[in-house]
């Protein structure tokens, strides 16, 4: 079996490994690099639980080959450690924004990206940004509340949805 040597930054630390070209990035992260917060739900790019940040932007790790991460920077929920990440975690807990928790790491990563890029986001924009992250437990409302409370408006002033 031919393998390809790859090296990339994983949560800020350099990693290198030798992979079969067909190995999905999601499997590489989960089963070769121990980052099991990267969940797998459909391997088709729909459910969003495998979302990671690739060079800071959300991406589906099930729709990437591990070889495509070569030379890039990958962030998983384990690596979210800045103050905003901690605020998000606290807010998710306080608002009961998770139940089974399976979608949660990906939800945090997407929300983190959104709040970094659009701290002014209102409810509709939050819902749109999270539309590619399915949750089967919460009905999204407490997730939206958790994210809204960290925007510049602090969850006030956008009753446009619904």
């Amino acid at each position: 079996m031919t393998t390809v040597d790859i090296a990339f930054l994983l949560n800020g630390r350099p990693v290198s490994l030798s992979v079969e070209p067909r190995l999905l990035l999601s499997d590489a992260l989960r089963h070769h690099l121990g980052m099991t917060s990267t969940h797998v739900g459909c391997e088709q790019g729909v459910c969003g639980v495998c979302t990671i940040l690739l060079d800071g932007a959300p991406a589906r790790s099930c729709l990437m080959l591990a070889v495509m991460a070569d030379g890039r920077s990958v962030t998983t929920a384990e690596g979210l450690s800045d103050p905003l990440a901690e605020q998000l975690r606290d807010s998710f807990q306080e608002h009961h924004a998770l139940q089974c928790g399976f979608c949660t790491p990906a939800m945090l990563l997407t929300a983190h990206c959104l709040l970094s890029a659009h701290p002014e986001a209102g409810e509709s924009q939050i819902r749109e940004a999270l539309s590619g992250n399915l949750c089967r437990c919460t009905g999204y409302q407490f997730i939206i509340d958790a994210v809204s409370s960290l925007t510049e408006r602090g969850g006030e002033g956008d009753a446009s949805h619904g």
Binding site: G45, T51, A57, P58, R60, M64, T110, G132
Partner: peptide, 9 residues
């Protein structure tokens, strides 16, 4: 087009 994570790739 799609969702954010799809658009970014």
């Amino acid at each position: 087009i799609g969702h954010w994570a799809i658009r970014s790739r």
